[in-house]
């Protein structure tokens, strides 16, 4: 009950957020530019790859802005007005994470699925493979889930949103190097983006698929687990 009430309240905040609204408009504009361009030249796989690639590259900063203030922006209010009531800290964190994930993934999926459909119909060369498209959209989606989880986690660690935003952004930029260091190529954003046009045309390995699924799920769970473990012990 408390989780649902918190989720509902936070989703309401999300829908009223100007960052979310402007992002939605920019995504529509992006589709309106990409589709006519693909109708005159280029392949659907490359066009969709370019469009999906903007999420971990450009729109990552919007995702961080939306998520890194989830808890820290309420630091002065949350103890007094929410956590002094009948709410566990788990419920609070999970509600915050769920609402940010819903907002990010809903906008991402709406943009990605619409673009994939329109490109398969109107691109000069339609080389999209349906399982490859599903795999690629899922892969970028999982990348965004990890990024959102990271940002929400850092917003529990720091009482200032600006610090959480900067730290998450630095970590995200360094993600490629970190994955290379630990030989986790299939989880590296750089590697994923390089392989995206091929994957959209159906050229991807089942091993890479499973590695990504397990790797991103594990990483996101660890990040959120750490955030909850920290927040439960924190003085508010």
């Amino acid at each position: 009950m408390a989780f649902l009430a918190l989720l509902e309240a936070d989703l309401k905040t999300m829908t009223h957020s100007w960052v979310v609204r402007i992002w939605g408009l920019l995504l529509i504009a992006q589709i309106l530019i990409t589709i006519p361009a693909a109708a005159s030249e280029g392949t659907a796989a490359v066009s969709l790859s370019d469009l999906l690639g903007t999420f971990p590259l450009i729109w990552a900063i919007v995702v961080i802005l939306i998520s890194a203030g989830a808890v820290s922006s309420e630091a002065g209010v949350v103890a007094d007005s929410i956590l002094s009531k009948a709410v566990t800290r788990y419920e609070y964190i999970l509600a915050k994470l769920t609402s940010r994930l819903l907002a990010v993934i809903a906008l991402y999926l709406a943009s990605a699925i619409t673009s994939a459909y329109l490109l398969s119909r109107y691109a000069v060369t339609s080389d999209l493979d349906t399982p490859g498209v599903v795999y690629s959209i899922s892969l970028i989606g999982m990348l965004l889930v990890l990024l959102t989880s990271l940002a929400v986690a850092f917003s529990t660690f720091f009482d200032r949103s600006s610090v959480a935003i900067v730290i998450t952004w630095i970590l995200w930029i360094a993600a490629g190097a970190i994955c290379a260091l630990f030989k986790l190529e299939n989880l590296s954003p750089v590697h994923i983006l390089e392989r995206l046009p091929d994957a959209l045309s159906g050229d991807y390995s089942a091993r890479a698929q499973w590695e990504a699924l397990i790797g991103f799920t594990f990483a996101s769970s660890v990040v959120i687990g750490a955030a909850i473990a920290h927040y439960v012990r924190k003085d508010l």
Binding site: A2, D80, S84, K85, A86, V87, R89, V232
Partner: peptide, 14 residues
Amino acid sequence: PNAVHLRRRIGFLP
């Protein structure tokens, strides 16, 4: 921190 059943019986004014 998670004793919800106790906080349900408390009214707090900061």
